[in-house]
Every structure is written in C-alpha cells, then in structure tokens.
C-alpha cells in the first residue's frame, strides 16, 4: 500500500482510539457532578470549579492524541 494512504489510516485510528478514554472519563465526571448537585443543590458553586479543572485535565488527554495525529500527519516525514 502507498505510504501516504497508511499515514491517513494511522491518523484516523490514532484520534479514534485516543478519544475513547477521555470520553469515558468526561462522562464519569459529568455523571458524578450531576449526581452530587442533585443530592445537594447548594454546593453547586463550590464543586463546579473542581469539575472544570478536572475536565480541563481530562480533555488534555484527548488533545495528546490530537498531538500525535499532527505529528504523524504533518511533522514526521
């Protein structure tokens, strides 16, 4: 197979498998914060900042996958 075709397949696979874990993680985090706000609506302001920070950390994992995709596609020859 042509190398550039393999490169596109690798890019698709890398981002596809790479976002599975962060997707599950973000789902769990959202589930946890919704449950805790439903149980105690008055703590929303206190805990949502931790949720945003955690979501930023989780999202970074998906962005590492994107970084690998950029490396495969545009940087590595």
């Amino acid at each position: 197979m042509d190398l550039s075709v393999l490169k596109f397949i690798a890019m698709g696979l890398a981002i596809g498998f790479g976002v599975v874990g962060p997707g599950i993680g973000l789902g769990l985090a959202t589930k946890a914060i919704i449950e805790s706000i439903a149980r105690q609506p008055e703590v929303e302001g206190q805990i949502s900042k931790y949720f945003y920070i955690g979501a930023g950390l989780i999202e970074a994992c998906a962005i590492y996958a994107l970084l690998v995709v950029i490396l495969i596609g545009f940087v590595l020859k």
Binding site: E59, A60, I63, Y64, L67, I70
Partner: peptide, 16 residues
C-alpha cells in the same frame, strides 16, 4: 513534559 504539552496542545488544537 505534561505541563508543557497540555498547554501547547490545547491552544494549538483551538487554532487548528
């Protein structure tokens, strides 16, 4: 390494 990559990749991904 993770500190540098996280910030860099988040901003670059937004630009892209």
């Amino acid at each position: 390494l993770t500190l540098a990559l996280r910030l860099f990749a988040n901003i670059l991904a937004g630009e892209i």
